[in-house]
Design a protein around this nucleic acid. Sequence first.
DNA 1: GGGTAGGAGGTTTTT
DNA 2: CCTCCTACCC
Length: 696
Amino acid sequence: MSRNFLSELNPQQKEAVSSDGPLLIVAGAGSGKTRVITYRFAHLAKKLQPSSIFTVTFTNKAAEEMRERICPLLGRDLRQCWIGTFHSQCLRILRREIQHLGYTNDFSIYDDNDQLSLIRHILKELNIYEALYKGVLQKISFFKSSLIKPEDFLSQSDGFGFEERLAKVYVRYQDELKKSNGLDFDDLILMTIRLFEEHPKVFKKYQQCFEEILVDEFQDTNPAQYRLVKLLAEPHRNICVVGDDDQSIYRFRGADINNILSFEQDFPDAKVIKLEQSYRCTQNILDASGGIISRNQKRREKKLWTDKGSGETVCYFWLSSEEEEARHIAKIIREFYLKNNYGYGDFAVLYRVNTQSRAIEDTLQTEGIPYKVVGGLSFYHRKEIKDLTAYLKLVINKDDNVSLRRIINCPPRGIGASTISKVEQHAKKKGLSLYAASKALLRSNGIVSSMKDKLETFAALIERLSEKSYKDTAELIKAILEETKYAESVDEDRAANIDEFVSAAMGKDVKEFIDRLSLTSTADDSAASGQVSLITLHSAKGLEFPVVFIAGLEEGLLPYLKAKAPEDFSEERRLLYVGMTRAKDLLFLTGAKKRRIFAKIKEQRPSRFLLDLPKEVCTIVDKIPRNLKAAPEASMTAKPLPPAYMVGSRVKHPVWGVGVIRDCYGEGDEAKVTVNFPNIGVKKLSIKFANLEKLI
DNA sequence: GGGTAGGAGGTTTTT
DNA sequence: CCTCCTACCC
């Protein structure tokens, strides 16, 4: 405790650690951000109780790491401290206080999977057949995380009927959550805000409790999360946010980069400190990535530097196919490995989409290079695990309609659509949850006996499971397995997963276990040792490797073909920037002329982003043999044309009149758009034939 | 109420 | 190409 933290820091870091009042720390890639946060925490803890510092991160991993690094600095137990993810902190508050909002504290938490099944149920119920249901969840979640209520966007509706229907689904969705005594991820934040705004007494308690607010990865906060920390910071105004606007890559999930860009508007007296010394990348890598990111318009200007030296130049290899690309990557890895400079664990191959890993995996396998694919479908998202979790949730919260719908006929017990719809109708009529409605139906004899028996058996099963007390969650899961014979209808793999699930549940309290399960997506086992990491650009954020490859630097892949609006391209650019700045020593970029996209082999062009690489620090190597290549120089320099039709722009059709473009896809003669015409509806049109007129 | 064929669509994903 | 959803049939 007597240790002087400040002596181990550079001047900007020092200031960031010890400064008072509203503070924004703009932390460039590899600038020692975590060190600053942990030291700041330790510094604050000299005069404050650690439990009065409200610290939020985005991942469980980051929160754990922070605890681990602060603990030795303070030499005391931090278990009671408020260090955690936005969602876990809110959950902790809501489990204590949610009765003020008319829920009970046994509420269920719904993940995106649960949300999707609920949305689908509602769309079916409202007879909305359009193939837009995937987007519905994303839109509702976006509205919620942006603090937009159904009536808010209804008032600015465009009269196409689209918003009205969406609002209807939104309202219905919230209703159903409430009936189920359930909260989705967005609700965890929103309900905490509501609790504070509607219950001043409770609010005051927490405001007084938290004298300092510390927010990590601030560039990824959504408006709701920002609102929450602003509320908490009101009385003391000691809010410190840390982030890097250039690494904001979660816009598609509602993250709002404006939170970090305009922080001073909310806190005019805020101090802004930039951490610009990188302890990770070589100067060449910083210059190359700087060339890419500096082309973005909306950003905070910064000049990263290092005393590591310039290092090797960044190389771009243009190869004939994705197989060639993979072979080339494998060849370089092998070379550096044999020269004994690096172990396999020092390499990472980054890519935009998961499907790209296939070709690389195949090659590494045949070359005998050990690798591991990071990310992918997590253990807890597997069907059998989710099924069993649904039983657990239902036992704890009988009103949980989503979990009940999931397992009422799983494994099959003869309760089909007609029985369920009978229960749904009764539930709706009486304003009950499905479980309560089932029991009411059984009592009232308002149901034919073939249905009745089966429903009775199910209700009795849930009752039996609830009545007993269990020494830990494993006991309860075992009881479920025994009663339902669930394990008998699954294959070996799934059975093995179930066994693993049971052992993970040993010695754990049921409610705590479910909460943990709900707020954890990845089984944190990503400690890659001696293996090449294959990983998406998104998942690579926060990691670093001595040697990094970024594969598929081609138009359509990076930037991805779905990018249409300028902000989309800015985000793709940031994504590339994040990838490049993962490299400590060496950075290789690759692209392939021919790539399989779904079934077809497509001709690819190099990514437009390559135009922004400073020539002095980059080497561009064309690996395609002379006689085969079709003027790569020309395609390198030719700036790709911006798409002629953009989402949101207005067009005029000779017959249907004026409409708004909802979507565009395809190129050249293949280009198509979907257009929403008032009073006519959504039409799919080919640009080539539709004879559309562009309106400004 | 449960199985199978046909069709559409197919990024990224901290919680 | 391959997966997952839906609709339809038994």
